[in-house]
């Protein structure tokens, strides 16, 4: 019997080449392997993290971005606790495909799944999607938003830790172990925002950004 309190499944999706595998590798192994081949079907990594004093086992499913693997990857959506939708900030087409991905998530995933929009490759200087545009999109579609760089290890840990924290809060409020569900939600949803201000040195994250995240979170809890 392994020693952990919660097991969460996190699935990464998004166009081919946006850096899903690199994000996962960076987080699970601390590596940035350049020149990765395309993922075939799905890959699978486990990392146990400690959040709020609890041991959490994260099952991270890295999916292939190419169209021909879609029917394999789709089958993993249903059991996911969180879905990370990744695009490349230096590649407009990967952003343009987001509505298609959302449609697919809508079709196959649990309606209550936690959704996070991630703009990857902030290390590149040929940015095509301004942070604000990504934020706007996330807000419109009830998603959290974060910009990362797997290469520079920026915001990668934070991304997964905050997902874990949010999922714990969800699980607790569902269990009814928390006294008040609404407060539990408020704490959980604050995570992305509050940490954003703490790490304001991170590129692409002004205190303004964190503000939007908070609002975004609140609108979620209201709906």
């Amino acid at each position: 019997m392994e020693d952990y309190k919660f097991l969460f499944k996190i699935v990464l999706v998004g166009n081919a080449g946006v850096g899903k595998t690199c994000l996962v590798r960076r987080f699970t192994q601390g590596l940035f392997p350049p020149g990765q081949g395309a993922t075939i079907g799905v890959d699978f990594m486990i990392k146990t993290v400690e959040v709020e004093g609890e041991k959490i086992k994260l099952q991270i499913w890295d999916t292939a971005g190419q169209e021909r693997f879609r029917s394999i990857t789709q089958s993993y959506y249903r059991s996911a606790h969180a879905l990370i939708l990744v695009y490349d900030i230096s590649c407009q087409p990967t952003f343009d495909c987001l509505p298609d991905w959302l449609r697919e998530i809508q079709e196959y995933a649990n309606s209550k799944v936690l959704k996070i929009l991630v703009g990857n490759k902030t290390d590149r200087d040929d940015r095509e999607i301004p942070t604000q545009i990504g934020e706007e999109f996330a807000k419109q579609h009830d998603m959290y938003f974060l910009e990362t760089s797997a290469k520079e290890a920026e915001n990668v840990e934070r991304l997964f830790y905050e997902i874990a924290a949010e999922l714990i809060d969800q699980a607790r409020s569902k269990d009814g172990t928390n006294v008040n569900k609404t407060t539990a939600d408020a704490i959980g949803l604050g995570n992305f925002g509050t940490k954003a201000t703490q790490n304001s040195c991170c590129s692409g994250f002004s205190s303004n950004t964190s503000q939007t995240n908070c609002e975004n979170g609140n609108s979620r809890s209201n709906t």
Binding site: G41, I72, S75, Y76, R78, S79
Partner: peptide, 16 residues
Amino acid sequence: VNGLCAVINNTASCLC
């Protein structure tokens, strides 16, 4: 293996 796993996943959702 990928195909098998996908079908098992589909089985689970079908059972739901």
